[in-house]
Design a protein around this nucleic acid. Sequence first.
DNA 1: TGTTAACCGAGACGGTACGTCCTGTCTTGGC
DNA 2: GCCAAGACAGGACGTACCGTCTCGGTTAACA
Lengths: 208, 208, 208, 208
Amino acid sequence: MDETPVRGRPRSETARRAVLDAALELCRSSGYQALTMKGIAEKAGVGRQTVYRWWPAKQDVLIDALRDLALLRAEQLNPETGDTLSDVRMLLDATFSLTTALTGNALVGLMAEAQHDPELSRRLQGTVIGPRRQALRDLLARGVAGGELSDAAMSLDLAVDFAFGTMWYRLISHHAPVDSELAGQITAALAELLRPDAARGPVPPPAD
Amino acid sequence: MDETPVRGRPRSETARRAVLDAALELCRSSGYQALTMKGIAEKAGVGRQTVYRWWPAKQDVLIDALRDLALLRAEQLNPETGDTLSDVRMLLDATFSLTTALTGNALVGLMAEAQHDPELSRRLQGTVIGPRRQALRDLLARGVAGGELSDAAMSLDLAVDFAFGTMWYRLISHHAPVDSELAGQITAALAELLRPDAARGPVPPPAD
Amino acid sequence: MDETPVRGRPRSETARRAVLDAALELCRSSGYQALTMKGIAEKAGVGRQTVYRWWPAKQDVLIDALRDLALLRAEQLNPETGDTLSDVRMLLDATFSLTTALTGNALVGLMAEAQHDPELSRRLQGTVIGPRRQALRDLLARGVAGGELSDAAMSLDLAVDFAFGTMWYRLISHHAPVDSELAGQITAALAELLRPDAARGPVPPPAD
Amino acid sequence: MDETPVRGRPRSETARRAVLDAALELCRSSGYQALTMKGIAEKAGVGRQTVYRWWPAKQDVLIDALRDLALLRAEQLNPETGDTLSDVRMLLDATFSLTTALTGNALVGLMAEAQHDPELSRRLQGTVIGPRRQALRDLLARGVAGGELSDAAMSLDLAVDFAFGTMWYRLISHHAPVDSELAGQITAALAELLRPDAARGPVPPPAD
DNA sequence: TGTTAACCGAGACGGTACGTCCTGTCTTGGC
DNA sequence: GCCAAGACAGGACGTACCGTCTCGGTTAACA
């Protein structure tokens, strides 16, 4: 293979972990806005240049940290229990369990930052948002194909929006927890909305 | 009454409007993170102290700006057309129309900032989030009371989460617009979920 | 007059003095090399920007500080006691008394820095070096014109070099003090070298 | 003898020369302040550790480089032509010829650095300054002993200060060259000041 | 003719000063 | 008293260099 020959002192895994851990912890305790490259370096007991050497900005540190976490718990995006609704519930459960207190601030802060950083937005879509969204949609589509579900009355895209929208809404607003019970409730609601015999109800008149 | 006798030069309405407009415009064009008290003052052509005199922080400027906007369009949170679903749709329409390009950044940025600012969180709940949420819930509750809807299969709170969660999700993620069509789709979905003859389907077993 | 109308908060004389004093003191105690803009600001209890606002680099701070000192003691470069040698001695005395422990480091450091900073070199020549040198040369020239001295055997320029060269040599090398006694000895030597009846001795053959 | 048996790869003379040359050249072209261990290593095409292994600081590199140069041209500190003034002139010539463009920056920079580094000061005195100074003084003392010169009117120490002070003054201030002509002029002046029949002139009154 | 140990390059490491920018406060003159 | 201007103390930014360290490779004297 074209394994580039390593020259010079190899990268310190200790420093890498210390930085990622410090970033998540600081983000949890003080919030995304207060998160600072300098603060990360000091908390991690690491030189400032060591942070900048590997991550251009605090967003990159956080994304790496989140990816590390996700990899650890990447049970599976595609549970395949045979039953579509069970698969849905397991996917939602697994997803919700990633939105812990440790990661909540980071996720919301990153999403906010992405409002005016298209590149960051693209990366978040590609790593954090997109795969989960696609996985759920695929599950539902499989259910439709198998006859368990029907998208006659409601588009699958909107169904997915319902599920993850509720999650984000609660993550942002904190008016209710994002837990396993919510996963069950959402699964039940999706079952209702996509039940095979559903017919689209009468659409209310436009609001003009 | 205790009308405090005004002394000295009265506050300049011109400066006030210039500051609020500058804040929203800068937030729109450069994002919440890049928004700066100094930047607001310069864009508004106003001394820095003039901004600090009336608003302690950039959040306060934005909240005031948003309130001004909302007041302008506060047709009503409670349309009362006689038909619950029509009322719901109108409320959603009115709400969605406030999440324009001009305000989207500000809303999301404020919500992110509120993650670690309980006071800000409280104020947002009291002004931006809470009233709309309560208004929708009240509409649905009235529909249940009138027999048009039923909360047998799904709690009204979760129904509200579906509606506004989808809105926030799209505001954050930009994968689909927040428009009148969405208002119609959500209304239809709510009608389905809360239809009087709905029965809660079998809940899938827990994932553990 | 075109007195520009002052706008905004006026410059703080307190801060100015604190910076100049801190710079000289730090230069004295730790040396020119260790002198730092950051260090100056901290020692002066002043924001870093306040230093940079008025002085681009540490050299500029030092030059200002030295100028302040020199102005305070600028009795006169041209004593005019009637007797040329007395004038010479007074000029040397006044000059040597400026090369205190407080300023020695600064002077030498600045001169060293000027080795590769033509602009700094020019400014030092114009403020610190040149005027003194010119004043001494003028005094000697006046003595020659008055018949008290003669430049037959030795150019006045070299005579000036002898006087100030010895001063700088001792400032740099510290092998002997730069004090009033030295002023007397140099004056006597100059009197000898420039005595009216001096004739240039036989020049030794070139070394080749 | 205690010749430690050399084991392993011997020190690279190539690297040593490259470092010394790079240091002098960088000091000449960019000045002492801008001289950097990193810069030296890179210019020399040598690892940074190779520089630090042999020289603790940039001063040490320069001193070694200067010593190498001096050794090459160490014609002699003690010419012994039989005539004291000729000897003096040859010594000054040899000394001045070392203060080339290549070494001027290094010398002045080192002297400035020595202001607050007693150890460096001591080493410079022992290698660069002291021996030359002592050699000149010895020459003059020999002349006094032989009756060619007299220290009745002026101490030999001050005479030495005149000679080397002028050199340093011009090295620092660049207002005139340090060349063979200067050596001749200084020799003539010393002959005048130390001529056997000189009598100390009337000392001007103290300035106070 | 291997062994072997010091050499050498490269470059990551924890630090620190750089000069810039923004913060929130203050202090002017003018309106 | 409000307003613009702008100086103030403070702190984070991202860059550059410091001196130390830790790698893989090289190389020459010794065995």
